[in-house]
């Protein structure tokens, strides 16, 4: 074997090894960006009725409010940093896997609370949870309007509406 072939094999293998490493890093990078897109959850319209409502009556109602809520942000707890873009659909919160926002919090119930839009105003409602839902410091007993920037507390998780 000529020396040049051996040298080419020696360095070629090392270069290939690093090419493989960087290809894998590239795949992971793409995956991370895909991940950051999906972590910005979009609350989908609730079924066909929801979409019909979205097309019809809900739109003008939102216009009359100057600062309507557009995102729900988790400010504390294991999901801190998660943003949900608000649509016209209700947001269910709890440990159950079919909730819109699944929180892995030991003090949360399976179906803990929900956020429902009514005439452009979001209402929080406790769904009979064990440890209760708090709007700032006060316990939520019935559907309560949620002002912007006021924390909703569920177990160790805090949520806020943001414009």
């Amino acid at each position: 074997m000529p020396e040049i072939v051996l040298t080419a094999a020696r360095f070629g293998f090392l270069v290939l090894l690093w090419i493989f490493v960087f290809t894998v890093v590239g795949v992971i990078r793409r995956d991370l960006f895909a991940g950051s897109r999906t972590s910005r959850l979009v609350a989908a319209p609730r079924g066909v009725a929801g979409t019909a409502q979205a097309a019809g009556s809900a739109r003008p109602a939102k216009v009359k409010k100057g600062r309507a809520a557009h995102t729900l942000v988790v400010t504390a707890g294991s999901l801190a940093g998660t943003k949900i873009t608000l649509g016209e659909a209700q947001i269910t919160i709890g440990r159950a896997e079919d909730s819109t926002l699944v929180i892995t919090d030991d003090y949360a119930s399976a179906r803990h609370a929900r956020l429902v839009p009514r005439d452009g105003q979001w209402m929080v409602e406790d769904l009979g949870s064990t440890n209760g839902t708090y709007l700032d410091r006060s316990k939520v007993s019935g559907p309560t309007p949620v002002p912007l920037g006021v924390p909703i507390r569920i177990g160790r998780t805090s949520l806020e509406l943001r414009p």
Partner: peptide, 10 residues
Amino acid sequence: APPAAAAAAA
């Protein structure tokens, strides 16, 4: 699973 589940739109 209700259609409102996350990413159902995508």
